[in-house]
Design a protein around this nucleic acid. Sequence first.
DNA 1: GCAAAAGTGTTTGGGATACACCCATGC
DNA 2: GCATGGGTGTATCCCAAACACTTTTGC
Lengths: 225, 225
Amino acid sequence: MKFTTPYTPPTLTVDAVLFQMNNNSLDVLLIRRSAAPFKGAWALPGGYNAAGQTTQQALGEVLKRKTGTILDKDVTHLEQLYTFDTIARDPRGHAVSVVYTGCGRDITHGGGSEVSAFYPVDDLPELAYDHKDIITYARERLATKLANTNVAYSLLPPKFTLSHLQTVYEAALGKELDKRNFRKKFLSLDLIRETNETWREGAHRPAKLYEFKSQSLETLQRSFE
Amino acid sequence: MKFTTPYTPPTLTVDAVLFQMNNNSLDVLLIRRSAAPFKGAWALPGGYNAAGQTTQQALGEVLKRKTGTILDKDVTHLEQLYTFDTIARDPRGHAVSVVYTGCGRDITHGGGSEVSAFYPVDDLPELAYDHKDIITYARERLATKLANTNVAYSLLPPKFTLSHLQTVYEAALGKELDKRNFRKKFLSLDLIRETNETWREGAHRPAKLYEFKSQSLETLQRSFE
DNA sequence: GCAAAAGTGTTTGGGATACACCCATGC
DNA sequence: GCATGGGTGTATCCCAAACACTTTTGC
């Protein structure tokens, strides 16, 4: 009723910024583009969203196809990040991209149609499109979420030491934290409990293992940092 | 390359949740639908987004056409809120809607193709689609922004009293605040300055007028509330 | 003078920060 | 016994919250 010419929507795509801790580094899952544009460059995994699919469904299918990642199994937290829509972002034509960000512990990848790899957020390769900006934005969102929710559960194994936990915060916030203050504050949030297991590794005192009381997202009243 | 049948994207739409203070109440701009579906119900202003338009451009055109609102002039703060994409939200077919939220001081409306009106967020009429949920979400976003940025500038006239300012916070947060603590805290944020004008109204002491130091969005280090 | 909103300080409690040493283990 | 990371307590400061009266005006 508004368009005298037939209404044509833009292309709709979905992309994902998936975080995972790999040996004390916060990493992002990337794929190597096998086709133009940006052939050979690294990019966020993503693809088309057809009519009749929700953006999350489309994302699940794209990830499975391109990286072999199973969204429901591998990704322990997922949220919509932002919708990017500048006309020039895709040289092939106007594409609006709904971007999700998520976390995992041991994301399967490599079984898909594209070459995939994790890269540290602080040491990214050259990226296609506006994907570098998107990752920066996703990382800020993650830092905010860590400060206001229990989302750390999604980046850690079910049982973890307080040092592991602190490493997650330090990697995401990009700064070092005081060990005593971190433990005091985090324990006061009442999100985790001690288990009776310990973690031993290396020539030093073993560490107590903790677990999150809840493995689903909860928002804190008092924020952290 | 991924679709054997020709790729068809969903319909793309844009909607806006525009807030304005009207006599101490936080109001939202709504239109009355003149066509099916939900004919006669109230709804957020919104419409189609064609290829080649950014979502903001599409929003500007839709607002101008339907409510007579001039986005660039009337809306003093605008941000993308969220993209809603559930299949069933529009009975006509799959529509993905990029929703913006914004604020104004004296938004012109009524010159467009649809009947429009401001309604208090705490006293909304029956709404079409999932628009009630969207307004709830937008209001939470506004509360967060008020706590972390100077966005209050966008809801107040250039010069305002501290009581006006407090009214904005109380309306958005939905609770009363202590006058002394509010003033002390807000002044310590260093966002506003006294002018040498006063505001007199009614049989009582006149109030000093203040102005924001900046009329563009700035993020605070220390959050409020 | 009285009604109505503007304006103003102090006390108290709790969380944030800064800071250094002993503990348990493997080799 | 020594190297390594695990684990712990205190003092200070600042902010948040609670709380009531005086001032200025119009009528």
